[in-house]
Amino acid sequence: MKRNPELKATLTRLEKATEGLSVDEQIGILDEAAQDPVNAEFKADIEVQMAGVLWAYGRINEAASLMVKRADTNIDNNSVQYFAGQHLLELCQFARAMPFLDRCIEIERASGETWYLDSAHLLRAYCAAKIGNVAQARRDVANLDDEPMHWVEADPIVSKASINAMIGD
Score class of each variant (00 low, 15 high):
K2E: 15
N4T: 12
E6I: 12
L7P: 03
T12K: 14
A17V: 12
A17N: 13
E19Q: 15
L21I: 03
L21E: 13
L21D: 13
V23Y: 00
Q26E: 14
I27R: 00
D31F: 04
E32I: 02
A33K: 03
A34F: 11
A34Y: 08
D36K: 06
E41W: 01
F42T: 01
A44I: 03
A44N: 09
Q49P: 03
A51T: 12
L54P: 09
G58E: 11
R59A: 09
I60Y: 09
I60Q: 13
I60A: 11
E62D: 15
E62N: 12
M67T: 05
V68H: 01
K69I: 07
R70P: 00
T73N: 00
I75S: 13
D76N: 12
N77A: 01
N78D: 15
V80T: 03
Q81H: 07
F83V: 08
A84K: 06
L91H: 12
L91Y: 14
Q93E: 13
R96N: 12
M98Y: 00
P99F: 12
D102Q: 06
D102C: 05
R103S: 05
C104S: 14
C104T: 10
I105L: 04
E106N: 11
S111T: 15
G112I: 12
G112A: 09
L117A: 09
A120F: 01
H121T: 05
L123F: 10
R124K: 11
C127W: 08
C127T: 13
A129E: 10
K130C: 12
Q136P: 03
V141A: 01
N143L: 05
D145M: 04
D146R: 12
P148I: 10
W151I: 00
W151D: 15
W151T: 02
V152Q: 05
A154K: 06
D155A: 07
P156H: 04
I157V: 15
V158Y: 10
I163L: 02
I163F: 06
N164P: 05
M166C: 03
M166L: 14
